[in-house]
Nucleic acid binder design. Structure first.
Ligand SMILES: NC(=O)c1ccc[n+]([C@@H]2O[C@H](COP(=O)([O-])OP(=O)(O)OC[C@H]3O[C@@H](n4cnc5c(N)ncnc54)[C@H](O)[C@@H]3O)[C@@H](O)[C@H]2O)c1
Ligand SMILES: NC(=O)c1ccc[n+]([C@@H]2O[C@H](COP(=O)([O-])OP(=O)(O)OC[C@H]3O[C@@H](n4cnc5c(N)ncnc54)[C@H](O)[C@@H]3O)[C@@H](O)[C@H]2O)c1
Lengths: 221, 221
DNA sequence: ATGCCTTTGTGCATGCGTTCACAAGAGGTA
DNA sequence: TACCTCTTGTGAACGCATGCACAAAGGCAT
């Protein structure tokens, strides 16, 4: 059985997708699922599913498939979803407030337990039942509530400063929406969601479709 | 010079990052930039920068670096940022409203020109100066405003239906926030932003840090 | 018990992406 | 002109990810 450390990044990023498919399957009353069916639901290749799952250890039954509940538990174990991971959101503007109001995190094991801003307009406000506290109190808040995830929803210019504060406060991982390259210790994993970048990437493929048709190499469709 | 079609996906997804670094550089008054400096700003390897840029054609000057303005124009050309790409947002809940209020898209060449919902509570409301229209009128709206990008911010259950409507209406690319595998024609590029998945992926790396220290293989730090 | 059918687990080949390392090019200087 | 310094552009090696294809294995029916 593979050590939890040895799972390739590409596989890790697909586990949540498998997880969601499994939850769906279980809700329909099915108790086992084949790699082919799981692949359909997850939108990937069946061989890839099997290879990915093989990194978790061997839990499939040949001729039958995978036990859905068991597999779900296994994935949850690898992703550390057994225990809740309390979240702080820093930056209570448009995006921060939308995230705070969203109930989906709570139910997925990521309760939002603190909201932070640096503007006196925001500090003290109650959003979704939580009082917005000041960035200066971050360390206290994080330690008291045992917060392990920090979400950065401030303008780009403040992101590095906020990131430093989060790391210093003891947060163990960061999700950022600011379009900024963050400098953090290797021990703190960071994931970046950059909406403007996503739109620009789409632009390339959209644009390409157009230029292709005016090209010398036509496609038969 | 490389055809616009031949740019690898990995490179395309970095172009917006280079673009942002270039805008920053230009704003400081610099007119040229070396691959090493650009790499620092973008958070990648210098050789990768050079190889990426080589797909756009050859625009660097040996011994000097790249002309920042020229390179920016070149990237914009590849990403199709020369012309505006009007956007429609479908789903005016927490997230949809936050996106609608955000000014950053407008200024980056992605004006939000239409807002859509299916709930009578939302239709008719004015959000950020735009009247929310009904999903049934989508086709008309898209054709009239020549909308090329659709953003899906509905619950997962409605996403495929909305996606079908967007494609039928003639939208040319889609950005979705719904945690659902969308079935769309190959000709319509889709990018998915899945926040719950991001948090779960972070969970793996966070979790791993912990299990590592209780392992036989200790690290000297 | 036997044999058939289904599905897993994985070896292997292929392709893509990353990075190194260096020759070649450009400009400046004496 | 000759030389020196800086930086690009890219060949080549490496490593990771993907997907095929098939043997091994489990279950079920007869
Ligand atoms: N809202 C969107 O739809 C959207 C879309 C794309 C990208 N983004 C990115 O997300 C981030 C947030 O966007 P937004 O629209 O919510 O911005 P916003 O301006 O509405 O809100 C930013 C908030 O951060 C607070 N803030 C500023 N500096 C701070 C600091 N040092 N510490 C703590 N709080 C601080 C401000 O007081 C404000 O409340 C930005 O980086 C933006 O580029 C947002
Ligand atoms: N808000 C967040 O912070 C957040 C975080 C993670 C994921 N998401 C995802 O983003 C999506 C939107 O989240 P939200 O919090 O804004 O949800 P929400 O429930 O607040 O809003 C959904 C909106 O979509 C509308 N809608 C429903 N069916 C529709 C249809 N067929 N056509 C048009 N409109 C329709 C509803 O009327 C509602 O206004 C969801 O898929 C959610 O999983 C949101």
């Amino acid at each position: 059985m593979a050590d939890v450390r040895d799972i390739p990044d590409a596989t890790v990023s697909r586990l949540p997708v498998y997880r969601r498919s499994l939850v769906q399957i279980i809700s329909t009353g099915e108790s086992t699922i084949s790699s082919a069916d799981l692949a359909d639901l997850a939108g990937v290749n069946a061989a890839k599913v099997r290879k990915d799952l093989s990194y978790l250890g061997t839990y499939g039954v040949r001729g039958v498939g995978y036990d859905a509940e068991l597999l779900l538990a296994q994935i949850d174990g690898v992703l550390g979803l057994g225990t809740e991971a309390p979240v702080v959101i820093v930056g209570m503007g448009n995006l921060g407030q939308a995230l705070a109001h969203y109930g989906g995190f709570q139910s997925k094991g990521f309760p939002i337990v603190a909201l932070v801003d640096s503007s006196m307009d925001k500090v003290g406000q109650v959003i979704d039942g939580i009082v917005v506290s000041h960035l200066d109190d971050l360390e206290h808040t994080v330690r008291e509530r045992e917060i392990s995830v920090g979400i950065i929803a401030t303008p780009g210019g403040a992101a590095q400063e906020v990131s430093n504060a989060l790391v210093a406060a003891g947060v163990r991982s960061i999700l950022t929406f600011a379009p900024t390259i963050l400098q953090v210790p290797d021990s703190v994993p960071v994931r970046k969601v950059d909406l403007a970048t996503e739109l620009q990437i789409l632009g390339y493929y959209r644009h390409r479709e157009v230029t292709e048709t005016t090209d010398s190499t036509d496609r038969t469709a």
